[in-house]
């Protein structure tokens, strides 16, 4: 029996006028898999992520999400259903936690919002779920009534993760989740991500420019340059035996600890 992919992207194309941001990109993502997308700034990584989530209009191509019932073509999905999907079975983790969190409400409300979005109307239950997820992302549950701006950068990023994971999504898109964090905080977040992915059976598309991050987390790797995928394969294979000149350059330019 073959495993069905969770998400298939076919010939996805997005241009900004003259600029090809994503040029005919295709790949499949399987349940429980982490796909790393790596490339230099301006290579179209973030555009690809936003295009997959249909947060911006795409020019051509198809994104198909296979949930338990039947495959869904995202472009043909009516907007209410798409927005609902984004806040239940999908999650989006921003590079800057300030974009993903509500900074003027408490941590508990931040986590509870997605539950209230899908119709939970019991204060006690929402609060219980919020403290459970705070513990899951290693934030002390007594900080539930603290505002996110009193949190450190790493804690804010973990809070954003809890906010997304509370509805138990199947697919999480992450845009440089470790950007702007110092090395030790980064390591802790990566550790947490790795264990959460395993216990929750998440599928993740992870955009980053940090080779260390993909080597630790990603099962498969896509290397992008100028809006095109220049190389893809198993992470270790791509990083240990790079074929494309750009990948070779990228790997050799990385500082080894």
């Amino acid at each position: 029996m073959t495993i069905q992919p969770l998400l298939t992207v076919e010939q996805l194309t997005k241009t900004y006028g003259e600029i090809q941001a994503c040029d005919r990109i295709s790949f499949s993502l399987y349940p429980g898999q982490i796909l790393g997308i790596i490339g230099e700034s301006g290579s179209g990584k973030t555009t690809l992520l936003n295009a997959i989530a249909h947060r911006l209009p795409i020019d051509s191509g198809q994104v198909t999400y296979h949930n338990s019932i039947k495959p869904t073509h995202l472009a043909q999905l009516p907007e209410p259903d798409r927005r609902r999907l984004m806040r239940t079975e999908w999650g989006f983790v921003q590079q800057n936690p300030r974009d993903g969190l509500r900074m003027n409400v408490t941590a508990g409300a931040n986590i509870g919002e997605r539950l209230m979005d899908i119709g939970q109307r019991h204060y006690g239950n929402i609060r219980t779920a919020a403290s459970k997820w705070l513990a899951q992302v290693e934030i002390p549950p007594e900080r539930i009534d603290a505002f996110p701006h009193t949190f450190s950068g790493g804690m804010q990023q973990r809070l954003q993760l809890a906010r997304v994971l509370v509805t138990q999504p199947k697919l999480v898109l992450m845009d440089e989740p470790t950007g702007g964090l110092d090395v030790s905080v980064q390591a802790r977040l990566l550790d947490l991500l790795r264990s959460l992915v395993r216990t929750l059976n998440l599928s993740v598309i992870l955009v980053t420019h940090d080779i260390g991050v993909v080597r630790l987390l990603a099962h498969r790797l896509m290397v992008m340059q100028g809006g095109q995928v220049v190389e893809q394969g198993l992470t270790d294979q791509v990083l240990d035996d790079p074929q494309h000149p750009y990948t070779q350059q990228l790997v050799s330019a990385t500082l080894l600890p």
Binding site: R102, V105, G108, A109, G112, E113, R114, M116, D117, I118, G119, R121, Y123, I126
Partner: peptide, 8 residues
């Protein structure tokens, strides 16, 4: 749902 955040 967002309105309930205020009540929360």
């Amino acid at each position: 749902g967002a309105m309930y955040v205020k009540l929360y």
